[in-house]
Nucleic acid binder design. Structure first.
Lengths: 125, 125, 125, 125
DNA sequence: GTGGTCTAGACCACA
DNA sequence: GTGGTCTAGACCACA
């Protein structure tokens, strides 16, 4: 599994691990039943602590995106396509909502906000 | 000055102070030359430490939204209307960009994202 | 007497008053026996506190650049030309020395420093 | 790391810390990737408060001379040699300029000023 | 009165 | 272990 981890970012390492694996599951790169790298292997490969990987996996487990089988490792759980999209949308909306509140408090209009998002989307393409 | 501070949030108190005053300046509720509450007064009124208020004010000072006058207190700096909007838009875009990247990584389309924002804006109104 | 006082600067008001009058004495604009504005008059004209002016005058008194006559006000003291230059040079050297130490600590050479001063002098002219 | 801190000086402790570490970075004594003493370690060793060290480090962080890594500590950032010299020169010029203005106001000539600097440099060597 | 600096503790998330 | 935030006091210069 290819991850890109850096301790220069504000984002905690455990969060980077969870986020990148979560994306692979939600966008279909990883599918139900796929095995995840072992905690120790991933820790070794990326020079991070076993505890750090463990905490990343725990987040995904709590979101029911992955599950562990005793002695066998971690596996991608079975989530149907509709649910995946629903999860992605829900987590996006939850993160974005407070930022929009702040923007409105600062005097931006709905139009300003939509235009800004539009511009970002165009640049991302 | 009316603020709403809580230590139940993940957002640091100093950040809550800075954010709420920033909004009042950017949306025109506070204008150039207005005085801010004294550090000690605000600390007393909201039962937070003097240092906490000071750090909030320091952020705003670094953003050049406010400035202090020796022995007199803090004052709202002079920023023109165009600049206010530019600042609000810039900070919004900067916060929102990484979240949009994540959403795209998770398989959401531009349409999904715009629709989600649209829904949030409608509910906020 | 024309002064330029601002509370936007880092320099205290009392220091601004002392500095500007000191310059007028050392560069000959004010000469021995000249009267200084009354403390209350200066305070009124420049919208600063009487205490602030008083403290500025006290600095100059301690430097023996001015003296008060009971009930009559403040007067410029008698200092000969050579002494004026010596005083200006001494205070310049004292302020500049620690800055030069810092510059050398930061790895600048004597040449770097002299060149920088040279550039500033050219621009000031 | 060897620092010399004193509360007898007018210079704030946090400023002394920042200044001395800044010098070590700019003159090459500390290089990119070097670790700084931990905030708590330095506070203990020099009998100053954790907050004081933290504020010193914050200054250097804002100047982008150092950066922190979560749970690991502070590290010297990567600045190339040319930039180091440019930064040292710029900060020197900025501090020195107002003092030269004062000296000129007090009637000193460019020659007086250059000679004074020259004398100081000779004594420093 | 005001802001600026400082102390000596504390609790938290993260590695 | 590390940094980040916070408290409840203190003393100072300045207006």
């Amino acid at each position: 599994m290819l991850l890109s981890l850096t301790d220069l970012s504000d984002e905690p390492l455990q969060g980077q691990i969870a986020r990148q694996i979560r994306a692979k599951i939600l966008n279909g790169e990883l599918v139900a039943g796929d095995t995840l790298p072992s905690i120790r292997g991933l820790a070794r490969d990326y020079h991070v602590s076993v505890v750090t990987v463990q905490r990343g996996y725990e987040s995904l487990e709590r979101e029911e995106l992955i599950h562990s089988r005793r002695g066998k490792g971690f596996f991608v759980s079975d989530i149907n396509q509709a649910n995946k999209k629903r999860m992605a949308l829900k987590s996006f909306a939850e993160k974005i909502k407070p930022m929009i509140k702040v923007a409105i408090d600062e005097g931006l209009s709905s139009g300003d906000i939509l235009e800004s998002i539009h511009n970002i989307l165009n640049r991302e393409e």
